[in-house]
Nucleic acid binder design. Sequence first.
DNA 1: CACTGGAAAATGCCGC
DNA 2: GCGGCATTTTCCAGTG
Lengths: 88, 88, 88, 88
Amino acid sequence: MSEPVGIAGDQLRAIVERIEKVEEEIKELTEGKKEIYQEAKANGFDVKILREVIRVRKQDQEQRDEQESLLDAYLEAIKVVPKVKKAA
Amino acid sequence: MSEPVGIAGDQLRAIVERIEKVEEEIKELTEGKKEIYQEAKANGFDVKILREVIRVRKQDQEQRDEQESLLDAYLEAIKVVPKVKKAA
Amino acid sequence: MSEPVGIAGDQLRAIVERIEKVEEEIKELTEGKKEIYQEAKANGFDVKILREVIRVRKQDQEQRDEQESLLDAYLEAIKVVPKVKKAA
Amino acid sequence: MSEPVGIAGDQLRAIVERIEKVEEEIKELTEGKKEIYQEAKANGFDVKILREVIRVRKQDQEQRDEQESLLDAYLEAIKVVPKVKKAA
DNA sequence: CACTGGAAAATGCCGC
DNA sequence: GCGGCATTTTCCAGTG
């Protein structure tokens, strides 16, 4: 009765386990994040505002990334490629 | 231009950086997860079903956890505490 | 002062009223639920445990539903459709 | 083996069933609400704004209720009670 | 009345 | 590109 589904079964099992492992790690980090917020709150910070700070900074970063890629486009258009970009 | 908000500035900065670091790590893991799904798909697996398998397994686990906590609640209600629970 | 927005006004009004009516009904039911808990408490039941019982039973049901939908997904994936599913 | 828990068991069962029935009804209404939003969207309304309209109207209503109860307080203070208030 | 946990909403993402 | 799905965030009820 063992191995009824054959090779694909093993493969499936491996995939499922890998995904579950990653999700477990994500869950731990998420809990860690929650704890940081709790700690901040305990130190008198307003969590809601703190979240907004994070959000705004993320947006800023995205804008900066956009600008940078726009700059890349310009540079490429005039044939002066930057040395490195980032890992794909 | 330096130290505009004074007192809590350093603390705030530290908190924000810690959160952003954790979020960065989460993001990387999430991308890793995505790649696993892609890879599975490339190997002929049905991603939709795969997701559903993961979900059902997760619910199984949660189910078990909650049954356990329900039992704990019963036991506590009738004053028969279990010897050990779990590591905090 | 009457009919300020014109065309879609009536339609919008109708939508808003329908939603508000439904929300009103939900609110009443929620209050009814609260009363049942209070009554149970007055009869000596432990509300906390009661809630947990309800929760676990709900999850049981969801579990069953998802198992079923997973099965459906499998059957569909291997092209063996079940005869009937459920009333839309 | 039947009826191991006695009278309280029946009572508990009844309570659980009543709660579950109410929750079922709430769930149906909630789904109905969702459908109204979907329908509105299909008719070209912006759901997010629609929600905001509902929210604002609710706030207005609450303010009006507050004002009313304030008025009641005044009236009572000067001994002129209003005919009806609302169902407790 | 502040804190926790659970429901609803907003957002982002992917496939069609 | 749009609608459905998954994740994240926000909100609210319940609890101590």
